[in-house]
Nucleic acid binder design. Structure first.
Lengths: 220, 220
DNA sequence: GTATAAAGTTAGATTAATCTAACAAAATTT
DNA sequence: AAATTTTGTTAGATTAATCTAACTTTATAC
């Protein structure tokens, strides 16, 4: 639990990329961090010595339990910070990522405990991503992609996948926020775009690219 | 204005040590940063290339105007952060230095502007040190050391010199805070200790070591 | 005013994190 | 299954920031 800023960034990336089986390629990591493959390989050997990742030549990378915990705690700090910046400091949800990216490396348990307390122990960040608990564990909710829902369904916007600043600004101009109730009015088979209504907007068109990045909760 | 974390720490130390004439020795800097002299020398050459310090072999070090500005802006971020941590996050004035030491390096103008706004543009930090303005300029008030005041005087506690956690805890247990009105009741020539009264405390003894670290405002 | 001490510099080594070039293994294509 | 592409590794160089050892300059003491 005393890793360099650089090591923390590798852990975080491993945690974030880890798909289904939790396996990650050197190439993926390299691309995601914008660091050349040989550098990634040598860092993996280093993290393996610290028992944070399992590393074997030519095999996929995997975080150890220790690695998962430490990565989870960094992401916890990142997401708590994003929530703090939006809720307490009134920054836009499209502006908080880069700041949180820096503050997540602050070493000070009290500081983040205080944040957590002031926010009344939030479970998700401003983009709907779950905040790992104090042991670094994440509970994943089973949301659906809006693009996978059926015509006629009424759903609630719960999270944004790959919440880039550009996409969030796109949502802002359409007055879309988390918690919003959305009715699916039409589905266009040709390009898989959909027409939805919500709030005062009666017929908003969303491309498949956009709707595949919106996660929703179906009516209970 | 794009310096490494390390460079920022040198600039800050130079700014803080700079006494009367603004000159600083390599030895002082070395001691203050706990970095050996040869390392300091080579960093000074580097900062000189960046036009942040004037450097000539065997001569005292001096910040350039550019160096002063950039150092002032880092200290501005440090002190704004301390104020934010105390005022908005309810941390004790003895606990904020180490956190601010990390947050001062965050690159995000908006973040600090927001802090400044939320705090209603404070002029001093929780220890009474002035917060440099947006151009990195500091206005020094002419405070007096409590140890230099006369018996009978009534003064207001305005700032703490060298606000270490230990000293601040010492003040906490004696219920001393900034803004406190203090009457000097006695002066002991032998050890230069003084007896003061304030609030409900009628006769508190302060050693010369303590009273020399308290800065006060005299009655106007 | 010489001797000693303190302050400062130079030279060269070390560590962390990165890179490029060249090679090796695994996966994919034909 | 051989050829090609993609993926991964090794070897060696580079940069920033640090160190120690040895030397030089400036300041202080007697």
């Amino acid at each position: 639990m005393n890793n360099s800023l650089t090591e923390e960034n590798y852990l975080k990336a491993l945690f974030n990329i880890a798909n289904k089986n939790g396996e990650v390629n050197v190439a993926e990591l390299s691309k995601s961090l914008d660091i050349k493959m040989p550098t990634v390989t040598s860092m993996m050997k280093k993290l393996a010595k610290k028992k944070l990742v399992y590393y074997e030549s030519y095999k996929p990378l995997r975080l150890t339990e220790k690695g998962k915990r430490e990565a989870g705690l960094i992401i916890r700090k990142h997401r708590l910070t994003e929530m703090f910046l939006v809720d307490k400091m009134k920054l836009g949800w499209e502006d908080v990522h880069d700041i949180a990216e820096q503050i997540e490396h602050i070493k000070s348990p009290v500081f983040f405990e205080k944040m957590d307390e002031m926010l009344d122990y939030p479970k998700v960040d401003p983009h709907g991503s779950p905040i790992p608990d104090i042991d670094g564990k994440v509970v994943l909710k089973d949301y659906y992609k809006l693009s996978d829902c059926q015509t006629g369904e009424v759903v609630t916007l719960a999270a944004v996948i790959n919440a880039s600043s550009e996409f969030l600004k796109f949502l802002n101009t359409r007055e879309m926020r988390l918690g919003l109730k959305i009715r699916i009015k039409e589905f266009e088979p040709f390009d898989k775009s959909i027409v939805v209504s919500y709030g005062k907007r009666k017929a908003e068109v969303l491309s498949s690219v956009a709707s595949a990045r919106l996660l929703v909760e179906r009516e209970s």
